[in-house]
Amino acid sequence: MNPAALKDLAALALFAVAVAALPLFVSSGFLLNIVIMTLYAALLGQAWNILGGFGGQFSFGHAVFFGTGAYAAAVLQVKFGWNAWAALPAAIALGAAVAALVGTLSFRYGLRGSYFALVTLAFAEVFRILANTVEFTGAGVGLMIPLKESAANFQFASPAGFLYVILAMTLAACLITLWLKNSRFGAWLQAARDSEESAAALGVNVFRVKLVAIMISGALTAAGGVFYVQYFHYIDPHIAYGLGISTEALLAPIVGGIGTLFGPLLGAFALHLFGELTRNLMGDSPGISLMVYGLILVLMVSFMPRGIMGIFSRGPHA
């Protein structure tokens, strides 16, 4: 491993230890909840970043993977009586499968840029309407997970349990990203992002590389969906396949710096800090906090196109 990769790994380890130690010092459920939701946003952001930042394919419909993971976990538990831990890998696999479908259709026909974004959005909408219609997913009413608090059930009595699970998921996403930065596959993916023609001329199977990227991204996003269901015990079509999740997935990397390892983490922390601050300072007038949030976002995108990471480095690889 090269020195830069070792440094990244050390930083990740430090971060993991710091977060893991939190429950020892912090007992406030409120604070731990903020940290959990921040990590959850970082997970979705890192998953999006793998496809959007390293693959250059900007998805505007990552909810399609999130919702699939969430519904897979809920349906398997409610309708088939599966254990939640057993449902997790199944949901992840299903997320990858849906990603393979979306990826095959879009990349086979050479959809890029805004066309790809629109197709992913359309997929999420179609899934939302389906989930709203069929009996299987509980239709518009949604699905409620029966409350059976125990670690063996992926339902923890204390927030610390959830913190460790989401930390593990987020770290997994970060380690995959670290691998992208230091592997042949990652080099091929970034080459395809920067110029598909040049990449193909150098022997890169552009279609395959992008397909694998979207499958990794979809699988990780589906894991986020499972976490959501276990944490909130409830899912409905609007939450699962709505625009909210699709936007949440791309916000953290865009604010933090796309195509970087730490961008989605930094972005998630910055956004949640802003989010909590505006909510607490302007909580009395609903909507204002969202407007301020939006304003900050617009300013960030116009003045810091490379996100928070852009402050730290002159080049994306420096």
Binding site: R184, A187, W188, Q190, A191, D194, S195, E197, S198, A199, L202, G203, V204, G259, G315, P316, H317
Partner: peptide, 21 residues
């Protein structure tokens, strides 16, 4: 069509990767 966001070394390495994992 250079891979503009990458360094010269990384650009060339994309070609090198064809026969080097």
């Amino acid at each position: 069509q250079p891979f503009a966001a990458q360094t010269v070394r990384e650009n060339i390495a994309v070609g090198s990767h064809l026969h080097r994992a």
